[in-house]
Amino acid sequence: MTLSEAWDRLFWAAIIVVLIGLVWIRFLESVIGPCDGPGLLVALAVGIVFFATGWRSAAARKKREMTETEAKDEL
């Protein structure tokens, strides 16, 4: 993953974390009462998962590309 791809992914991860946090406060808390600790954890967890999947798929893609170029070089 290049630095610029990582940054892009991080940016969207942050956007998603905040979104989940806001939805939590606005909708879930009105039902179950104030509890921001768990909400924060859930939001952060989703953000980390989102970032990690992006990281892994980028790594897999890079590996594939590298093997492809190696195959071409051998030809």
Binding site: L22, I25, R26, E29, S30, P34, D36
Partner: peptide
């Protein structure tokens, strides 16, 4: 006060 102000804002 934690997230109190956001709670206020959203409601």
């Amino acid at each position: 006060v934690g997230l109190e102000n956001y709670r206020f804002a959203l409601n």
